[in-house]
Amino acid sequence: MIKILSVGALATVQDLGRTGGLSLGVGTSGAMDPLALAAGNILLRNQENTAAVEVPVFPFKVRFERSTVFAVTGADCAGRLDEAPVLPWWAHRAEAGQVLSLSHPKQTTWRATRAYLCIADGVDVPAVLGSRSTQLRGSFGGYEGRPLRDGDELPTGRSNGRAVPGFGLVPPGLALPLEADGVPAVRVLPAAEYDCFTNSSQDALWSTGWKITAQSDRYGYRLSGRELNPLRPLELRSHGIVPGVIQVPHGGQPIIQMRDAQPSGGYPKIGTVIEADLWRLGQAPIGSNVRFIRCSWDEALGASADIRRWLANSRRLVELHCGERGGR
C-alpha cells in the first residue's frame, strides 16, 4: 500500500488506457505520456501496462507502507526520498515508512509537466471494463473513479520480485527531440475537413506557433493563435474521434483532443496529431507554444517505429543491467 500525504488537483491512477468501450461511449483515458508510463514499468520489469500514479500538479507527497522498488518518470521533479535526492527515470529502493516528495518540475533539463510514480508492485485497483485507468467523466476505474486526495491509501499488488534498483534510462525528451524553428513540435496528418479551410488557415496551421491556453486538461488542449476559418460554415454529423484530433469550433481557435476526450464529436477536423507524438503533447506546459509539422503516412509509420525501437532498446538495457546484477 502507498498513502497519499499531499496531492494537488487531478492526480489520477492510469495505465495505458481502456480499449473496446468506444461503442458504449467510453473513451480510452490512460496516461497523458504513455511513453513515460511504459518506460517506468520497463525499468521495474513490470508489464508495460501496469497502473501508476500520474501527477500533474505539485508538490506531491506519498508514503510507502512497505518496502518496494519505484521509479519516477516523466517530468524532473527534484524528488526526495526522506532527505535523499531521487534521480528521475531511475529505479530506487524505498523502505517501509519512507516518504517520497516531488516538487514543481524543473524545465531546465527537459521540458515536461507530468510525473509518473511507478512501483514494482503496481497500483492494484480493480480493472474496470478492462483497464485500471481513471474514467473521470464516467466516475469509474482508477481509485474510486476520481482524482486522488490527501489521505487516500492505494492498494499495491505483490512485488514482482524482479525489480533491481540503481539503474536508469535517458528520457525520450532528450533522446527523441522534435522541434520546428526552435519550438517543440508534433507531427500531424491532415483530417477529413482539411480541404474545407481557407488557404491562409492551412498555412497558419503549419507555419505559426499555437499557445496552449490555461483551459487545457486531460480532456483537451484549447489553443490560441491565428484564426482558422472554413471556406463556409460546416455542421457535421457526430462521428468517432480519437485523442490527437484537432477540432476547429466555429470560433476558429483549435482544440486538440487528449486522453480523456470523448470518443465522438462533430466539430470540423483540420488534422490529427499522430499517436507516436501524443506523449510530447501530454508533457507540454500550459502557456507554452507548440508547432505542427505536416507528415505523410510513411513518416507517421516511421515515427511509430522509432517509439517501438526506443522501448525495445530500453527493455534490452534493463535486462542487461539486471543480468549483471544477478537479478532474474
Binding site: 461503442s23 461511449g25 467523466r137 464516467g138 466555429h250 470523448q262 465522438s264 462533430g266 466539430y267
Partner: peptide, 23 residues
C-alpha cells in the same frame, strides 16, 4: 449509436426545422 461519454445515445429523427448550430 452510442458515443460522446459513457452511455450517451445519438438519436435519429429530430425535426429539421428546430436544428440549431453547435455553440
Amino acid at each position: 449509436a452510442l458515443g460522446s461519454h459513457p452511455g450517451y445515445c445519438y438519436l435519429g429523427g429530430m425535426d429539421a426545422r428546430i436544428a440549431t448550430p453547435r455553440r
